Simulated scan of single mutants.
Amino acid sequence: MILPIIAYGDPVLRKVAEDIAQDYPNLEGLISNMWDTMYNANGVGLAAPQIGLPIRLFMVDTTPFSDDEELEEKEQKALKDFKRVFINAHIVEETGEEWAFNEGCLSIPDIREDVSRKDTLTISYLDADFKPCTETYDGLLARVIQHEYDHIEGVLFTDKLSTLKKRLLKSRLVNISKGKVKVDYRMRFPLEKKAR
């Protein structure tokens, strides 16, 4: 089932999400619905707060990035068929050089900006079967995970922009909250009060 994606301005996107237990109600169905929602919106990641749930759950499928010819072959291989569910994730460490990459977000349609993040991250989490994992990722894979992880910490990519850039984007962000933006997937806008 395709769920509406929560737009910028909704308080749920600013909450630090809570860990969940294995008996979380209909978790398997929720994960399935989140995959459907993400693919319907042509996303490569989706976090539970983006569908209105302040829980520590997000997913990533970087397969669409794997045929980017500008990437090295090693990175293309890492991105190909990488599809993972992260439950109760916590970043252990972020290291390496900071690098900028143009990011966007399903909750903030029509805005893309360069965001600097560390190159490498180690993260501990539970997979979809609640098996504990601790893994290290780098490059674009790390960046996608960092972006989704930020959602469960109540952080948006626009928070990482300069004060000037935030000021320049302010009216566009307010318009997104009001639903004054063209999207081709279902959204719920906090200042409009109805999903499309």
Rank of each mutant, 00 (worst) to 15 (best):
L164P: 00
K166F: 13
D23M: 08
D129M: 13
H147F: 13
D10I: 01
E192K: 15
V181E: 03
S177F: 11
V16R: 14
D68R: 08
T62R: 08
G45T: 08
M34L: 03
D10W: 10
F86H: 03
N88C: 08
I108C: 01
L140K: 06
D68Q: 01
K178S: 01
M187Q: 15
F130S: 10
A41N: 03
V60G: 05
M1E: 10
L13C: 06
A89H: 01
K178E: 14
T37D: 12
E28M: 02
Y137K: 04
G29H: 14
Q146Y: 07
W99V: 02
V85Y: 02
V115G: 00
Y185E: 07
A48K: 02
W35H: 05
R188M: 15
D114T: 08
T63G: 06
E192R: 15
K170G: 00
K131C: 09
D23W: 11
L27S: 00
F130W: 14
F101R: 04
F157G: 07
L164R: 02
P49L: 10
G9K: 07
V183A: 05
T136D: 02
D150V: 05
G29F: 12
I108F: 06
F82D: 07
D67V: 01
F82A: 03
I87C: 05
E69A: 14
G43H: 02
Y125D: 04
A7K: 09
K160A: 15
S32H: 14
E98Y: 12
E94P: 03
D114R: 11
Y137W: 06
P64S: 03
P4S: 08
M38Y: 04
L30C: 05
S116V: 04
G29I: 11
V181R: 01
V155H: 14
D150I: 02
L173S: 01
H147R: 02
G96T: 04
K15N: 04
E192V: 13
G9W: 11
L126C: 10
L79S: 02
L126N: 10
V16L: 11
L121I: 15
E18Q: 09
I123D: 08
M34N: 08
P190V: 03
R172Q: 09
D10M: 03
T37I: 07
D159K: 06
E69T: 13
A195Q: 12
N40C: 07
L79Q: 07
E73V: 10
L27W: 05
M38D: 03
N33G: 10
V44M: 12
K80N: 11
D67C: 02
E135L: 15
A195V: 15
N175E: 06
K15F: 12
M187A: 15
Q50G: 04
P64C: 05
V155C: 11
R112C: 09
D110W: 00
N40E: 13
R56V: 14
F86G: 04
M59W: 01
C105I: 03
I152M: 12
T95F: 00
D159I: 05
L161R: 06
V183I: 10
E148F: 01
R56P: 13
L106H: 03
E18C: 11
G179Q: 00
A78W: 13
P190T: 01
F58W: 01
